[in-house]
Design a protein around this nucleic acid. Sequence first.
DNA 1: CCCATTTGACCGTC
DNA 2: GACGGTCAAATGGG
Length: 323
Amino acid sequence: MAMMSWEQRGLLNELIHGLKAAKQLQASPSPSPSPSPSSSSSSCLTREMKDTLLHQVVSSYENAIMMLNGTHNPTTERATYPMANSGKVPESPVSITGSPKSEEFLDDGSKDYTLSSKKRKMLPKWTEQVRISPERGLEGPHDDLYSWRKYGQKDILGAKYPRSYYRCTFRNTQHCWATKQVQRSDGDPTIFEVTYRGTHTCSQQGNTPQLKRETKPNNPIIKTINYQTTLLDSLRTNLTVRTNGLEGEAFSFPVTPPPFYSLDSIHGGGTFRHVGNSCPSDFTGLISTNTSTGSSPIFDVDFHFDPTAEIDAGFPTFLHDSI
DNA sequence: CCCATTTGACCGTC
DNA sequence: GACGGTCAAATGGG
């Protein structure tokens, strides 16, 4: 996979994702008319879980098809998307509503801290939809393993939820102009639209960011998928997750994102870090994902759970074995 | 002390 | 002038 092009990887990711979900569905026993609550088998999925999986399968294949159908030109796009991470970890942004266009690549604004809006407009832009569901966890390609820094939040006219703005942590040090916007969907609060703009010119994967003196302690990149599924499973079983009408307290804590395409080599574990949130106006609790290099998709979860607690291995992991 | 986040102010575009 | 996007000072956590 190392030498795959960006879009090949994305495509493969989508297919793997869909296949995985399909396998789960396949593995689960056919639904009995009177579903017993027995959770003896992890493969015994609730109807809700199946719906989620189904949705996942469908959307993965849709994404894959879109990629194949995409308007982008792979060759130029390749040039437009320097794999700063040297192919180690794919940049996950996968175009759903739009494909990265081959655009002029910024001439590495050695001076232009104030990137002109015209240039900004020319940056490639694509949107990814990220879905969070309490029982399933993250769905879909949702996270890049880049490090983002939030630089703003705005209430958007007509939108229920504010939009958050992120830029690459290495904007100043490496003149990396990648940005992303995250906005919760009005219609389906479990869906977040992540709009990426620009591509990373930084080299985050290979390099330990010099900004961070140390990579954060307990954050091996490997602690990802189980951590998330267990977390989210635990949320499902123990917490009230409200996905709309959020008011009052919400938490913001980064977790380690699972690159969904590398689900096989992943362990559980991880810790929460409550990074506080006291947005006086509305809310904006975030579960942002974070790795040694960080990143930050957003979820709004209103719950009462000690975010500083370590994830216990005993958490339910209904996806665990099949991943 | 360094870095990330928050949030009001500012700016460009429509 | 409204709106979206960004800046930057203030703040807080580690």
